[in-house]
Design a binder for these strands. Structure first.
Lengths: 214, 214
DNA sequence: CGGATATTTGACCGATTGGTAAACATTACA
DNA sequence: TGTAATGTTTACCAATCGGTCAAATATCCG
């Protein structure tokens, strides 16, 4: 009889590695659109191209699938903020942070929506991560920003709300993509909208934070 | 036998008015958290404090419930943008638009989340409204902003992305409320965070748009 | 009051849900 | 090559899903 994966201690097989990848890819498709409750294992199985019991051989529950997905996404999602360098100069750091976040919104919209869905539902599966690792990282970067303000490199402002505003403006292009496209109309819905957004947002934040004005 | 509500032509009774209100209130609670697919009629019935067949007496399907809710929310949600006055001066208009949107995020977070859920799912129920009335309204206001830029009242910028950035930054405090609270920590999670956000955002946009710099 | 109309409910339906059991097929490896 | 471990599938389960129906009850109005 096959031993359920989660109870196994040996290292993972090649097939395990591949199939788990296929499943998580399919799960991302489904969860990112319908959220946890609104998604069904059958849906994910169909997208993954395998039978439902086969999915459940690799992930014992729907919850386990979601958990694995969230864990993976959460890490890469914070990469841009981690790259935010205290020793760089404010203008280039802010600019490249905005660019990086916009690139993620463009290249990984499903990941952004998965996260947004989780937030809308009150973060029932990740609240601990928010209060722990996320808060710590933001606290650290907020301190950097505060120090820049202290020496006059940027205008005085609340660093937490600054971070929130960069998050929200950039993720908007992934999470509200339909709305953005609808409002811009067909002619401006090409990939060029990300370049337009980058230009606009960089100027907004650089000028809005009083950078380069000295 | 009772005639299904939707087929009736007579005016609504007092009870109808009251019960439909109770139902939509409960539906808002549930739909705004779990989205359309993730919500169940039983859940809504329980929150509303009435039996499932009774709900279905007033709204014949789950879809009808959602539809009625979306229609109501969509109208009031655009109120602040409609109030955006072409004859006002840029600074006060931008400031009060931000304030109004933040107040809505504070006072009607469920409505914001309902809308966000719909967007994340690709707006299957409201895409027409986005391409029609919403786009028209935004086009109109974008023209106002463009004219301000033309006469030098504000810096040149893409008016559409400007509107997106005000939407996203303000709605963030409703849609990502859990995250905002988690990051700010208990001590800064009181209602004061909306005042802090307003101060920060007003400065960001006023300075970022080059208003008052002349 | 009484009858017409409006409202509410319990019992129920077929479809779908997350998940299981066990037979069967395939792979890895000695 | 043989066989033990791994991987896959068919058939199935109880619970829940959206929704119906007819009977029971409450309300309105003359």
């Amino acid at each position: 009889m096959a031993i359920p994966r989660a109870a196994r201690t040996q290292r993972r097989t090649r097939i395990q590695e591949e199939k788990e990848e296929v499943i998580l890819e399919a799960a991302l498709d489904v969860f990112s659109v319908h959220g946890f409750r609104g998604s069904t294992i059958d849906q994910i199985a169909e997208v993954a191209g395998m039978s439902k019991p086969n999915l459940l051989y690799y992930f014992r529950t729907k919850e386990a699938m979601h958990r694995a997905l969230i864990d993976r996404v959460l890490f890469t999602w914070l990469e841009p903020l981690r790259a935010f360098d205290a020793n760089g100069n404010p203008e280039s750091e802010i600019r490249s942070y905005i660019r990086r976040k916009l690139e993620m919104a463009r290249d990984f919209p499903r990941e952004s929506r998965l996260f947004a869905n989780e937030m809308l539902q009150g973060a029932p599966h990740v609240e601990d991560e928010l209060r722990g690792p996320l808060k710590s990282l933001v606290d650290e970067k907020a301190e950097v920003i505060r120090s820049w303000a202290k020496v006059g490199k940027i205008a005085k402002c609340d660093p937490y709300h600054l971070i929130f505003s960069i998050w929200s403006t950039t993720q908007h292009y992934a999470d509200f993509d339909v709305q953005v496209r609808a409002v811009l109309g067909q002619e401006h819905s090409g990939e060029g909208r990300f370049e337009d957004a980058a230009r606009y947002l960089e100027k907004l934040f650089v000028d809005g934070l009083g950078i380069r004005r000295s």
